[in-house]
């Protein structure tokens, strides 16, 4: 049990380091509170965006928390891919540059899994293969207005 936990943890940690660096140019790793007996402690994340010192998770900004959380989700995906990912406005805290970085990461991952991403932001919509439009023209009934193909 502990053996399989440790193997899983090691693989996800390795993935996390690579993806966190890709998303925020910094160093990050996932850390066991109790290294000797992992199931007796929790799991924390040490993240250090570019040029900064190591930060406490709680004091991170909204954008930094989003990128760190997404790096963790992608680290799991690399280890145990699901057939589809459905994300609802995961880019809402991100500035222009980070929205683009996330959009490119999703694009590159979309060759091994399906991504359905609700977004209001240009970088995400422009990076996608296609956009499904929804609207409620009359009295609150949702209609799907069709699919717009990109480039």
């Amino acid at each position: 049990k502990i053996k399989s936990f440790r193997e899983t943890y090691d693989q996800i940690n390795t993935n996390f380091k690579v993806i966190f660096n890709q998303l925020s140019d910094g160093e990050g790793r996932i850390v066991l509170e109790n290294d000797i007996n992992p199931l007796a402690g929790g799991l924390t994340i040490e993240a250090q965006p570019r040029d900064k010192k190591m930060q406490r998770l709680e004091s991170m900004s909204g954008g930094e928390k989003s990128l760190t959380a997404l790096a963790f989700v992608f680290a799991i995906q690399r280890h145990m891919p699901a057939p589809f990912y459905a994300f609802d406005e995961v880019d809402m805290h991100l500035d222009g540059i980070n929205s683009e970085k996330l959009a490119h990461l999703i694009k590159s991952q979309s060759s091994n899994a399906q991504f359905i991403v609700v977004s209001l932001r240009k970088p995400m919509i422009e990076a996608a293969d296609r956009t499904i439009g929804v609207t409620q023209k009359n009295s609150g009934i949702t209609k799907v207005t069709g699919v717009r193909l990109h480039g």
């Binding site: 965006p49 900064k52 991170m60 900004s61 909204g62 954008g63 930094e64 990128l67 805290h93 991100l94 500035d95 540059i97 980070n98």
Partner: peptide, 9 residues
């Protein structure tokens, strides 16, 4: 305004 993590909040 400014990048994520720059100190706005």
């Amino acid at each position: 305004s400014g990048p994520n993590g720059s100190g706005k909040s």
